[in-house]
Design a protein around this nucleic acid. Structure first.
Lengths: 336, 336
DNA sequence: GTAATATTTGGCAGCGCTGCCAAAATTGTG
DNA sequence: CACAATTTTGGCAGCGCTGCCAAATATTAC
């Protein structure tokens, strides 16, 4: 029906057509458009006018193929539902957009097999660089990345071997610092709530650092609740409830992130458990929601945006492989 | 230093080299790789083996140029820091990934000029389709999109004129439904907290629907607090505080999203304002954080993930232009 | 004025792949 | 075994652009 009305511009406008319209060679048009090489002011105006009139949109696919160099930066993260990762992206965008680079985002759902798949398909687009969350990858992923010749930065975690650039902080040390805080404040019967270690290596490392310090202090983590892939208020709340049902004598609970911790806090409010006198609550990440809770949450503020930004800058710069540590900060609220 | 060690595979492996290695023509290799056309089982195995050994990664840039058809879908959203948009993306990914399409995400920061820019640069990559949040665009954006020939779906809002496909719900009606709820429950001195109307047209439309119903009921919105670009607990909390300082007689406040509303709820907890007897709180979006607050928040659950999924499906399908309404749902909690 | 120099422009090959079609190899038929 | 039908394979043009270099034109020097 009405295929006449629906006259989609079947024939895309190409450089050649602009060239014909202006009466100049294709190379000249191309130079003007990329503002590269020399051409007269008059030429420039004529070209721009024609481009405008014809509605020409340069074809970057052809351009990239011809010049071998895309303006795409691949970013690979486990999830978008944990504020950490949007923050990382914002940071990267701050560094990348002004220099004309576009980000292509892929989500792995905390699955390194899935990560391998998405990296493989991104590689097919020959990105200028890669930003990947974490240091844990399949062997094949590591190999692909290595001999792709693409610059890569691994973000958020410095506890391990990187492929090229690594920007982050020691997750282990962050866990340890959290434990030191709880120990100093006198807590001894401590619980832990976090994601299954199998899929979140950073949470695992934090836990290792955490429990090592607790053990040194002559205590041990009395209870743990390990939960699935969703970082949410709901599961944090439910986990704390279960944990306290099992072991009401706990005096502090460490949550692997603030979403969980706020859920825990909600449980305490709802069950009239007074915080921190009956039970201390500590989170991780320094989310807004925790900072502005009725009782501000004690947490560790992580430099996510900076990590994204610095990672992006480094990956675009020349220099050799490096590890950059961006410090986290323990923020005491009113819950410990 | 050690440029010998650092032997990055300068010469990328190409189809031609695979072809040479296997001793078959390039077209044959290409057919095997795309599993398209016919070839013998033996050939297939030989090719796959060589591909594996050489570490060949097909160059989609060349492929797309030659076949004119990319597997990229552009998604344009105002922010990643409002859970609405990650949800939209997840929905789209569910529909797109299984059929081999990759999403390229761009963020506009609620700025339609910025939107124009990002759409222009995405267009340069000749995406197979576009998913864009909202109906409000610059004239130029609309024109570019129209004669790009790329299929486009506008998401989240059905109050207005779409370019092609529109999937969402009536924001105005959602606001009106919220107002009806508050009126029915007997509230009359009502406040509103939301983003500046200038940059968030959907919030504006909700407010319009909301205030129209309030007016019909013989009341009017007694107080409004309009705030900047950040949707966060903090600003919601501060806004409510200011509002109540000005006008302590309010009996209900409608927040334009749950983040704000939870901030308001926190203010009430902290200031010992009893909810809902002294003050009713209502939010919008149906976020986890609101549902599992000590007092579950009354809110409107919006079908974000479905909208993303259905939008993606429609944009990939044939059919003509359409408007699809995905219903929202008012969820009464314990705060009204 | 001409020669030397600087600026602007055009032509053409080729980036790595796919689509098309014809050639070669394989299988089936009487 | 010849011939037709079918399956598998290869050759080549060309997608739209850029990089290179040479040609044309403008500018300056003497």
């Amino acid at each position: 029906m009405d295929q006449d009305d629906d006259q989609r511009q079947r024939t895309e406008v190409t450089l050649r057509e602009v060239s014909a319209a202006v009466g100049l060679g294709m190379s000249t048009i191309s130079r003007v458009l990329r503002n590269h090489g020399s051409f007269s002011k008059a030429t420039r105006d004529r070209v721009m006018k024609a481009v405008e009139e014809l509605g020409y949109v340069p074809n970057r696919i052809a351009g990239t193929l011809a010049s071998s160099g895309s303006n795409l930066v691949g970013i690979v993260i486990p999830s978008l539902h944990n504020i950490v990762f949007p923050d990382l992206l914002s940071g990267a965008a701050v560094a990348l957009n002004p220099i004309g680079f576009q980000t292509v985002i892929a989500v792995t759902d905390y699955d390194i097999e899935q990560e391998q798949k998405v990296i493989q398909s991104m590689l097919a687009w020959r990105p200028a660089a890669f930003l990947v969350a974490g240091l844990e990858h399949t062997e094949r992923t590591r190999a692909m990345l290595k001999n792709s010749g693409v610059r890569i930065a691994e973000l958020l975690d410095t506890d391990g071997e990187g492929i090229d650039i690594v920007v982050g902080f020691s997750q282990r040390e962050a866990g340890a610092a959290s434990a030191r805080h709880l120990i100093e404040r006198g807590y001894r019967r401590i619980g832990y709530v976090g994601p299954e270690f199998s899929f979140d290596p950073r949470a695992r490392k934090r836990f290792e650092g955490f429990s090592a310090v607790i053990a040194e202090a002559g205590a041990s983590v009395a209870e743990t609740e390990l939960i699935g892939r969703t970082s949410s208020t709901e599961v944090g709340r439910a986990a704390l409830e279960r944990m306290l049902a099992r072991n009401p004598s706990l005096d502090a609970v460490y949550f692997s992130n603030d979403d969980f911790a706020v859920g825990g806090l909600f449980h305490c409010f709802a069950s009239k458990i007074s915080v921190p006198s009956q039970l201390a609550i500590m989170g991780f990440n320094g989310l807004d929601i925790g900072r502005f809770a009725p009782q501000p949450l004690t947490t560790v503020r992580t430099p996510r945006t900076e990590i994204g930004e610095i990672g992006a800058r480094m990956v675009m710069a020349q220099g050799g492989a490096k590890v950059v540590d961006i410090p986290f900060e323990l923020v005491r609220g009113a819950t410990t």
